[in-house]
């Protein structure tokens, strides 16, 4: 049980990183990016292809994959920023649903619809505590999750770029009028989250069920993690991801829960929403 829970930590770290990315995007560019995990999946598949078919060593291949993931994400950002600059979050997010469909189908065409032959970047146990193994991947993802959240927090609160980004997210038009390069900054947010997402997916994917659909649907637990922080708080997004991963890992150990555990992220989401939306809220400011 404890072993299972700790095994879930790797997945939990992945959810946490993706959840942090989702939170950042929701705050800074007003999008819930449904293609977040799919972008990572696509970049990762490119990396896998470079290793298996082009014979590249693993790290350069992952680097190329990360660049591609970041570029795809930036491209979506450019499209949304150009055509829906003032639209509400719902309309902007809907576009990423179409992108999600596009990326999954395209990966079926390019890479087939079977799980990919991954060579793990990190493998093996990091250390053992009284018979319980903690893997390197788990350590890596948890550290990355905390690092990403921390650095995002520092950038947003302490640097001038961060202040501009926040101005941009709250008053896009006004920010542009006072001379903040809105387009460039928001595309940079898209590119960064895309690249970070790809990196963690590439490292954790070998330990997950790694067909294109399953990897793209990682956006669901990631959204659950982000929801714990209300798509605003980075620390809670990290906590949410880790808790969800550990819960799933523990549930996987119980055969009675083998079907029910798939519904964990869904139930997590529903529970959080029911709690956070218990008070009536209205759509427009007035």
């Amino acid at each position: 049980m404890l072993q299972g829970a700790l095994a879930g930590l790797a997945a939990g770290g992945l959810y946490a990183v993706l959840g942090v990315c989702l939170t950042l995007m929701s705050r800074l560019v007003r999008v819930v990016n449904f293609a977040q995990a799919a972008t990572g999946m696509f970049g990762t598949y490119v990396a896998v292809w470079l290793v298996s078919d082009a014979g590249l060593p693993i790290w350069p291949a992952v680097a190329v994959g990360v660049v591609i993931g970041g570029s795809i994400s930036a491209l979506i950002g450019i499209i949304i920023g150009t055509w829906l600059p003032e639209a509400d979050t719902g309309s902007r997010s809907a576009v990423t649903v179409a992108v999600l469909l596009f990326l999954i189908s395209l990966s079926f065409i390019l890479f087939g619809n079977r799980p990919q032959p991954f060579r793990p970047v990190l493998s093996g146990p990091a250390f053992q505590v009284s018979g319980v193994v903690i893997s390197q991947v788990a350590i890596f993802t948890v550290v990355v999750a905390v690092l990403v959240a921390l650095s995002a927090h520092v950038v947003l609160t302490k640097t001038s770029v961060g202040i501009r980004l926040r101005a941009l997210s709250e008053r896009p038009t006004t920010a542009e009028l006072v001379g903040i390069p809105a387009r460039t900054l928001s595309v940079a947010v898209w590119a960064t989250t895309g690249a970070v997402g790809t990196l963690v997916v590439a490292i954790v994917a070998p330990t997950q069920s790694n067909d294109a659909t399953a990897l793209s649907m990682l956006v669901v637990p990631a959204a659950a993690a982000a929801l714990l922080g209300g798509f605003r708080r980075l620390d809670l997004a990290v906590v949410g991801g880790l808790v969800l991963g550990v819960l799933q890992g523990a549930a996987a150990q119980l055969s009675q829960l083998s079907v029910a555990r798939h519904f964990l992220p869904f139930l997590f989401i529903v529970g959080l929403l029911v709690w956070s939306q218990r008070k009536e809220v209205w759509d427009a400011a007035r």
């Binding site: 997010s93 809907a94 669901v220 929801l227 992220p265 929403l273 809220v281």
Partner: peptide, 29 residues
């Protein structure tokens, strides 16, 4: 029901979560 007071995006998250969960569960069951 939980989506009652939700904006569109939250409903999208809920429904995608349901779709993903049911998909995996169906293959198993």
């Amino acid at each position: 029901l939980p989506a009652l007071r939700l904006r569109g995006v939250n409903l999208a998250v809920v429904t995608l979560g349901l779709a993903a969960a049911v998909d995996v569960a169906l293959v198993q069951v």
